[in-house]
Simulated scan of single mutants.
Amino acid sequence: MINFKEVTSQGFVGRMEDVIPAKAVLVTSASKKVPLLKCVLKSIQKIGHPSFLISGDSNPNAIAQFFTDSFWHMPRLDGMDLQKLLFYCNEQHIKYIIPTRDGELSYFSRYKGELQQNGVHVMVSEMKGVETCLDKLLFFQEGLALGFSVIPTAEESSALDVSHFVVKERFGAGSESIGLNKILDEAEEYAKRLQHPIFQPYIKGMEVSVDVYVQKNGVSKGAIARKREIVVGGESQITTTFRDEMLEQQCADFAEKLGLYGHVLFQVIIDDEGKYHFIECNSRFGGASRLSIECGLDSFYWFLLESGGSDLTQYPFVRAAQDKRLIRYAEDLIL
């Protein structure tokens, strides 16, 4: 890595015009997502061509800047139109963008086509798929119409014939504001705290995530299921892969039928009878998705290969022979 100190007028750290190679990879909303950045860096190194890793965030103090070649203090997306974005990409030789936050997926999906026409590839789904995944009620409706066992979702508790409820926000990632296992009165009261509450039945069972990579041609390349053993703030702190070919195939099929692209993540409950209940889908890389990469689902590498024109049939999905466990923990960096 190159250690930069100078800050340019555009908010970049480092004199990039002096050292930047032919292409650069930008990871947006990088925040403190160091494991994700390490995965991207490893993929860049596997490609074998000189590339520059840039972390971008609207927070000038984002920890990510200490783990990449350079840092872009990005403007807010609502103040950056396509021309401004293209200017930054052209000036810094950015050819690949990897969005990592739900709140920015619609923005990059909106400009995905124009960016590609200008030689910038974005790992994001088309707008319809993004909107379906961001709206839990729409996800239920679409999933039901497609024939998948999505968990019933309603805006009114009276629409569900159950005794215990889950209450959450309808839009985006609302894991921190979720109300679990509430009886009717508790659920109704809890819903008053939320902006756009929805109700779902509370189902006992094993909570799992399934990472999927969907290629540009709309066909899934691979899927890996993992148990969410300890969850904090909606993200797995301890997660272990396991084999369930039927579940993985269903998630791959679901992703294809939703028209998704790139790395996507399904949340599923497997009840005591072994039945699947699809809760939601995040059309982005998840907090603990690094484990799936370590087990062979090489999403960032495949994205870079595809964007460069490579035929992914020459790069098979080879799943690790043994299951693996990921444990997330804090670590210090001494400079």
Rank of each mutant, 00 (worst) to 15 (best):
D69W: 03
S310Q: 05
V40N: 13
E273P: 04
A145L: 14
A330N: 14
T241I: 03
S109V: 12
A154L: 10
T100N: 08
C295P: 06
N181Q: 12
P201V: 04
Q45T: 15
N118F: 13
A223N: 00
G11W: 08
C133P: 08
H93P: 09
A191C: 01
G233Q: 06
S70F: 01
E104T: 08
I238A: 12
N217E: 01
E229M: 07
L26T: 03
G222L: 00
C39E: 15
G296A: 02
Q116W: 10
R243P: 00
R101Y: 08
Q250P: 07
I178H: 00
D57E: 06
F4W: 13
E280M: 00
D185A: 12
L305K: 11
A255H: 11
S209N: 13
R193C: 04
S9M: 07
Q92W: 12
W72T: 02
E186D: 04
E114N: 13
T153E: 06
N118C: 14
V212I: 13
S292M: 04
I230R: 08
V167D: 00
R193P: 03
C281G: 03
S177W: 05
L265D: 12
T153W: 12
S289A: 12
E280L: 02
E6D: 03
K112N: 13
K5R: 11
D211L: 09
D102C: 08
G234P: 06
V219Y: 14
V208D: 05
Q322E: 12
A191Q: 05
E176L: 15
Q314G: 12
V27Q: 00
H263M: 15
N90C: 03
F71T: 02
L26V: 01
L115Y: 10
N59S: 06
V219F: 12
C133M: 07
V167W: 01
Q249N: 08
E235P: 11
L160S: 04
T240N: 08
G172V: 03
Q117G: 13
Q65R: 07
E245C: 00
E126T: 05
F66W: 14
R226I: 02
R76G: 10
E256F: 02
L86M: 10
F300C: 13
E207C: 01
V124W: 08
D271I: 13
V318I: 15
V166H: 00
C295H: 10
F4H: 08
L335F: 04
F285V: 11
V214C: 04
C251V: 06
D211I: 13
A320E: 14
D69K: 04
F67H: 02
